[in-house]
Each structure stands twice: as C-alpha cells, then as structure tokens.
C-alpha cells in the first residue's frame, strides 16, 4: 500500500465522518422544524439564518451543562455506554457506497470507505452491537426507568433484527452477493430494476423493521416519555446525553442510506450510465444518493409526527406474528421463483 492510497483512504474516512456528523446536526434541526411545521408552528428560527445554527447552539449548551454522575451508578459501564452506542452507529456507514467510481490521479477510486465482501452482514453485526449501549446504559444507571427502557430495547431489537435480516435475505437471493456494490450494480438500468419493484413486500417489512431498529416512533418504546421519563438515558446529562442523541440520528442516517442502497438502487439514476460519463456521472450519482437518502430521512421525521406509539404487546405481536411469517413467506416465494427460472 503506497502513500497515495493511504491518503485517499484517510480522506474518504474523514469525508464520510464529517458528512455523517453534519447530517446529524442537520437532522436535529430538520426534526424540530418539520415537527413544528406539521403542528402549524414555526420551530427554532432565531439562531442564524432560518435557525440553521440552532444545533450548534444546542451543542454548546450541552457542553456547558454540568456532567452529573448520579450516586449509585455503576461508574465504568455508565461512562462507557454512550460510546458503545455511538461508535457502532458511526462505523456502519463505512461500507455503504455513496457514488459511482471516481478517476483521480490516474487511479480508480470507489466512493466507499471499505468494500467488504460481506457488507450487509457487517451492517447487521454493528446494529446488533448497538443494543449493548442501550441495555448497559439502562442497567448501569441503577434506576428503574432506564432499566425498563433498556430491557424493552433489547427485546425489541432482537425481534426486529430477525425480520430485517430475513427481508435482506430475499434481496441477497436476488443479487447473489453480500457485497453492497454488487447489489447496486444488479439494480442498475431502468426504473423497474430497482428492488422496490421486484420485492415490494420485502421493502415494506424492511422499512417497518428499520423504524423499530432505530427506536423511532411508532416503535420508540425504549424512550417512551409518558411512561419511562426518558427511557435508557433518563439519568444522563450533558455531553453523554448528547452522545445518545447523536447515536440515534447517526443510526437513522445509516438506516436511510441502507434502505436506498438495498431497494432504490443506491446512487443509481435510472436510464443513465453514470460510469461512462466521467466526472459528471460521479457528481450526478452522489447527488442522486444524497437526494434519495434525504427523502427517507424526511420520511423518518414525517412518520414520527404522524403516528402514535404502539403498545408493547402490539409491538411484539406485530414483530413475531405478522412480520416474521410474512418475511419467511417472501423468502419462500423468491427462492421458489429463482429456482424455477435459473
């Protein structure tokens, strides 16, 4: 590995990291503004033009707050838990391709931090690791509401991870590869080659599971304010609380990007061959990726301010009695179809 290659990788890592953090800030802003709009309000609009600097003001506020460590908490784990949640959330984006290959300095540079041949499994592994942050935060706080929140989250995430995994399996069956690049190239061409149209049921299941995985409404039972005060992060304050928040939004960004990659052709623009268009193609593909992801991020917010929360038994019923059989059925159909046609 020569120096230039190392440099390119470093630049890519920094770029993706910065983009994710920036999007987190934007998402916090967008969440507040859009929720306000839906409720007929204006939302934060004072700090900076249109209130765009509000997240930065929030960040400064978090930094200035007293960092309270309640008596009776299990200190090492209490301190570790926010990091345990945030780090996997930020790592996940590494395998998602965000544009077609770029040619610079006579080199072919894929717009992706790491092209892992088990890309999807990597993402699944990291999302399943994120649970520890929640569960341990709940346990270490030594308080009843966080504990309940943590327990709920572990049960919920395990249930829905299964369904999400099964929905992904049907996509993997179609592409015959676990590499995200292969899944994207298999969706290239015209509109109908996108996986949403080939696998509408899988898409629906995946979308619902993703909302449960990211603890977003209507599945935000882990932090159900009315019942659990704040859920797993009740006892946290200051920057550690902010880390939980950032992790939640980082997870959302990855989830939206993954949805786009798996079902909406990733950076693909229909009817165009980006790879043969040089620089323009790269710019177009990145723009397409960003736009598609932005739509799903908007959908996250939109859904949150539309639907009420599930009851816990309803959540489990939906997960195990409806979504799981449907996902299995879908795999069965897909596999059967593939077996007959190939």
């Amino acid at each position: 590995m020569d120096f230039l290659a190392l440099l390119i990788i470093c630049v890519k890592v920094l770029l993706v990291f910065a983009a994710t953090m920036l999007t987190v800030l934007l998402m916090i802003y967008a969440e507040r503004r859009i929720s306000a709009f839906i409720q007929g309000r204006l939302g934060p609009n004072r700090v900076g033009p249109h209130g765009l600097l509000q997240p930065i003001a929030d960040g400064i506020k978090f930094l200035m707050k007293e960092d309270i460590i309640p008596a009776g908490v299990d200190k090492p784990i209490y301190l570790l838990a926010p990091a345990m949640l945030l780090i996997p959330a930020l790592m996940t984006f590494a395998v998602i391709p965000f544009g077609s290959d770029i040619t610079l300095f006579g080199r072919n540079i894929p717009l992706q931090v790491a092209d892992v041949n088990v890309g999807i499994l990597y993402i699944l592994a990291l999302t399943s690791i994120g649970v520890y942050g929640l569960v341990l935060a709940g346990w270490a706080s030594n308080s009843k509401y966080p504990l309940i929140g943590g327990l709920r989250s572990s049960a919920q995430l395990i249930s829905y991870e299964l369904t999400m995994g099964l929905a992904i399996v049907s996509i993997v069956l179609l592409s015959g590869s676990l590499r995200l690049n292969d899944i994207i190239s298999q969706q290239q061409g015209h509109f109908l080659s996108w996986n949403v149209f080939k696998q509408p049921l899988a898409f629906l299941i995946f979308l619902i599971a993703v909302y449960a995985e990211t603890n977003r409404l209507p599945f935000d039972l882990t932090e159900a304010e009315q019942e659990l005060v704040g859920g797993y992060h009740t006892e946290y304050s200051s920057m550690k609380f902010a880390m939980f928040y950032m992790a939640e939004y980082a997870n959302m960004i990855t989830a939206a990007a993954l949805t786009v990659t798996l079902f909406f052709g990733g950076w693909d623009l229909p009817f165009l061959n980006e790879t043969s268009m040089g620089m323009l193609g790269v710019v177009l593909s990145v723009a397409a990726f960003i736009l598609k992801t932005a739509f799903f991020l908007f959908l996250f917010i939109w859904v949150r301010w539309t639907f009420p929360r599930f009851r816990y038994d309803q959540l489990m019923n939906l997960g195990w009695k409806v979504m799981l059989p449907l996902a299995l059925f879908n795999i069965f159909i897909t596999a059967g179809y593939l077996a007959l046609t190939i």
Binding site: A125, S128, V131, V135, S154, I158
Partner: peptide
C-alpha cells in the same frame, strides 16, 4: 452477529 449480537444480549437480559 450470533454470539455477541444475539446470544449475549439475551444473557444480559436474563442477568438483569
């Protein structure tokens, strides 16, 4: 996925 992500989470769950 299997050991760290699923089984150990259940262990922790039970321990708690």
């Amino acid at each position: 996925i299997i050991y760290a992500g699923a089984i150990m989470v259940l262990f922790l769950f039970v321990i708690m």
